[in-house]
Simulated scan of single mutants.
Amino acid sequence: MLDIKNITITMMISFIIVVAIGPVFLPMLRRFKFGQTVRDDGPQSHLAKNGTPTMGGIMFIVAIFITALFRGRFDSDMMVGLICMLGFGLVGFLDDFIKIKMKRSLGLRAWQKIAFQIAISFYVAFYQYTSAADASQIMIPFTEMTIDIGILYIPIMMFIIIGTVNAVNLTDGLDGLASGVTVIVSLFFMLFAYMVAGNSDVGLLSAATAGACIGFLCFNSYPAKVFMGDTGSMALGGAVVSFAVLTNSVLLIPIVGIIYFAEALSVIIQVTYFRKTGKRIFKMAPLHHHFEQCGWPETRVVFVFWAVTVVMCWIGVFAAF
């Protein structure tokens, strides 16, 4: 049952926390010189963003955590969803910190990232597999059927969790893109959690995430005053994928999260094709940079990607309901 009052209050609290701490937190980022370094081989229009404060994802991570603390029941599902978000957010934070303060451009080493991500994804997958009797019964979109993947559930979910988190991370490349897309996706999972899965804890966590991202857009929409950094994008990836895992609806991610999926796929295609042929399919990857290189203004790319997400979430409604 959709609890409009509870959802509205949850979203408002999360939104207000972000808007309230922003004017305090942004000067702190500048003081500690947590500024973004834009790649020279990226779109030339982005060079003006050099020095813009990053790691702003801490703002909405704090808001989501505090909101969940006061609004949620903090039972197992709520706790696991928060751990997934905070765990991946911590990986992103370490990556950002090493890049910016320790001047190591690659951040965490590849094996370190993978090790952290495997540990967090195993925890979430194992929890769901052992605590939910129907966990291995994955719903098939557009049908009333489910598929039982049995013991393969854990490795398959680990792959999906890590893949989704990194896809959201790749989506964060334009002002307001990842945060805006995640608002829409979170609202979808909020409806799904309440009306289909009957999981009010995931519903509240989704609502808190949507509210926090709307608040963050006050600072992150074009022209951005702050970037979320890997801290924020990986935390959002952890949040979104936890909504899907905890409601047994991971096959909805490629539909409602089509932008995440397309961004990751564009990178995979570009790298694979270039290694085999020495040529590029896209002018630049991830996909949002390809459209920029085609002459689209940054704001147009973001608006179109938001619009595509809205349309796909409506399709997701038909797929799920």
Rank of each mutant, 00 (worst) to 15 (best):
D75R: 12
V18D: 00
P141L: 06
D148Y: 15
W314R: 13
G232Q: 02
R30P: 13
A235Y: 01
F142G: 12
H289T: 05
A239H: 05
L108V: 12
T143I: 11
M102A: 07
F93E: 01
P297N: 06
I100H: 06
K101V: 03
G51M: 08
C313H: 13
H290T: 05
G107N: 09
I114L: 15
W111S: 12
I149S: 15
A20Y: 10
V226R: 00
H290C: 03
F34G: 08
V304P: 11
G278E: 05
D172P: 10
T231H: 02
A319K: 14
F216A: 00
Y127F: 14
Q293P: 06
K113I: 07
M158V: 15
G89T: 00
F261N: 07
A264H: 06
M1N: 09
L108W: 15
D175P: 12
V91R: 07
M139K: 14
G107I: 04
L106G: 15
Y222V: 13
I9S: 02
A63W: 06
F192Q: 11
H46R: 05
K283V: 00
I7S: 07
I162A: 15
S186D: 00
G237E: 01
V267E: 07
F282C: 03
A193N: 00
A212H: 09
S186K: 02
G232C: 03
H290Q: 03
T182M: 10
A262I: 06
R280D: 00
M312T: 14
F305N: 13
